[in-house]
């Protein structure tokens, strides 16, 4: 079947997957809300509204639509900004993990033999460790609250699955005639990797990347929840949930609003990722 035919087939399968389509629509809406929503509200994220400390959600145009927190900050705007931060770190960390995972996996799979064994053994060892600990070490030693350190650290430990997938692909691509032709034509190994191996394994990699995004968002929120991630005045969904968890008794919405956003985000990303995998990855059928 031609390349185009495979694509159309996949799209058709994707369109039949109602859960993935609905999740995709919800996700789009949330993205739109996260970036355009703060402008709709009469409030901003930093103003402390002393008249309204920890008020419940109000349903008037000028009110705090999702309530306020302990310091009187508007929860609607704050949650949306936190969603932006969480999404941003999730996407950047995924990009970092793609970069490392593709390089590592493609090299191991293409070179094969001893090198492959050693490289994948290292992946196995790292796999068996609670990888978030490595992130915790990194956040201990580097300046805390630095968003760059945060997504680099999360991405640097999230590449293991990607490396395994890429290696598998590289192993099978290595046998293909066009790679043999390139070898015979005298193309050097780096050239083969960049020109022939990597472009051809991007399809499944992109599919799995959509499943990696919610993972990365989860790691980030986890760290921020523990106080090791994003720092005030910035907030991510994890740090908002942490604040909310402190007084669930008097003001449960401070917990429930960001928690609801995070869970919806994660569930939608997972449904979309699963849908894409089922539609485009032939191994699953």
């Amino acid at each position: 079947m031609t390349e185009r035919g495979l694509w159309l087939e996949g799209l058709k399968r994707l369109r039949r997957n109602r859960a993935a389509i609905v999740a995709g629509a919800v996700l789009l809406f949330m993205l739109l809300l996260a970036f355009a929503g703060p402008a709709l509200s009469p409030h901003d994220a930093e103003t402390l509204d002393w008249e309204h400390i920890a008020v419940a959600p109000q349903f008037s145009a000028a009110g705090h639509w999702l309530g306020t927190d302990r310091l009187g900050r508007d929860l609607f705007v704050r949650t949306l900004q936190a969603t932006q931060i969480s999404l941003l770190i999730g996407l950047l960390a995924t990009a970092v993990s793609l970069l490392i995972g593709i390089s590592w996996g493609a090299l191991a799979g293409y070179l094969g033999g001893r090198t492959d064994e050693l490289m994948m053994r290292a992946v196995d060892v790292l796999y068996s460790l609670p990888y978030l600990f490595i992130v915790i070490i990194l956040t201990t030693v580097f300046a805390r609250g630095n968003v760059y350190v945060l997504f680099m650290a999360i991405g640097a430990v999230g590449w293991l699955t990607m490396a395994r997938i890429v290696r598998g692909q590289a192993l099978s691509l290595k046998q293909k005639e066009f790679v043999e032709a390139a070898v015979v034509a005298g193309v050097a190994t780096p050239g083969i990797l960049v020109r022939h191996i990597v472009p051809n394994l991007l399809g499944p990699v992109i599919v799995y990347a959509t499943l990696a995004i919610p993972q990365m968002i989860l790691y980030e929120s986890f760290l921020s929840f523990l106080g090791l991630g994003v720092q005030e005045p910035l907030a991510s969904l994890g740090s908002l949930i942490n604040q909310g968890a402190r007084d669930i008794e008097s003001a449960p919405w401070i917990l429930l609003v960001p928690a609801g956003f995070l869970v919806t985000l994660l569930v939608c990303f997972n449904f979309v990722g699963d849908g894409l995998r089922d539609a485009f990855d032939p191994r699953e059928r």
């Binding site: 989860l218 929120s221 986890f222 929840f225 994890g238 949930i241 942490n242 909310g244 968890a245 669930i248 449960p252 917990l255 429930l256 928690a259 995070l262 869970v263 994660l266 569930v267 997972n270």
Partner: peptide, 13 residues
């Protein structure tokens, strides 16, 4: 899908 730092506080609530 539910992270433990959401489940924990909600169960406590």
């Amino acid at each position: 899908a539910l992270p433990s730092f959401v489940v924990g506080p909600v169960l406590a609530l």
